[in-house]
Design a protein around this nucleic acid. Sequence first.
DNA 1: GTAGAACCTGTAGTGGCTACAGGAACAAGG
DNA 2: CCTTGTTCCTGTAGCCACTACAGGTTCTAC
Lengths: 140, 140
Amino acid sequence: MRKNSDADLTIGRLSAEARVNIETIRYYERIGLMAKPPRSDAGRRLYDAAASRRLCFIRRARELGFSIEEIRALLGVSGGKGRCADVHALTIRHLGEVKRKIADLRKLERTLARTAERCARDASPDCPIIEALSEPRCGP
Amino acid sequence: MRKNSDADLTIGRLSAEARVNIETIRYYERIGLMAKPPRSDAGRRLYDAAASRRLCFIRRARELGFSIEEIRALLGVSGGKGRCADVHALTIRHLGEVKRKIADLRKLERTLARTAERCARDASPDCPIIEALSEPRCGP
DNA sequence: GTAGAACCTGTAGTGGCTACAGGAACAAGG
DNA sequence: CCTTGTTCCTGTAGCCACTACAGGTTCTAC
């Protein structure tokens, strides 16, 4: 059962361990984010502990909203090939994007709340929300 | 130049007037959000003022983050066929989603900020961000 | 041995666009 | 009228990060 690289995790077990969908793992392999693992005689993928750790890294980074390409860069650094300053810069840029998204959504929230407030909420076909969306002036 | 339906706007002019991309207008036609307009002898789409107003409605609703299907429903109401209460319900649901997204992003923002703060920002390959992403404990 | 679960590859789809390719028609200026 | 550049057409494919099959093989438990 032991292979030379200690790879004995099938994809299903890896999926459960790292909490990443099987199809997603195959996808990550396809796009090069995960290495092609050794196979059993039956052609089944066999993963080791290092692969599991890498997949967890990827999942955490995804959860933080980093894109696939950003994660590629992060993985580059995590191998000791990059610098902390680069990671920081990437994180700060990402943080800025998150802040911008929040600001946009806050604006949107306010507009929606204001509009909904004016709504009579009855069976009438007259509706201030629809009226607002139907403003005749549209062009510049 | 005048047609029986007063349709004399080419798609480019409609695009400029409603501030919606030409390709997007064609896409909306394909998915049934916009009606197929009459054509010139040369096969060019010719839009009237009502089409322009409808497109503006769609754009505004998109800007408010409503999905295509939600916009379909809103357009149904705007023709006098629905009720204000339904619009309100749709808007409140949407508002709830926006609030949830904001809450998620706020959480994310805090995590990113906290992590970035611990960063030495130097040329070191040792990096607390990478360390956090590399936590050995991954499974449940 | 059998049935169900796990795994494989390859392809297509999700949502909402966006960008071509390869052609035809139009408009403006000389 | 001719030329050139712009606008428009249809159809197809791609973006991002997955996700869901179809149709098959292999494994596991009873």
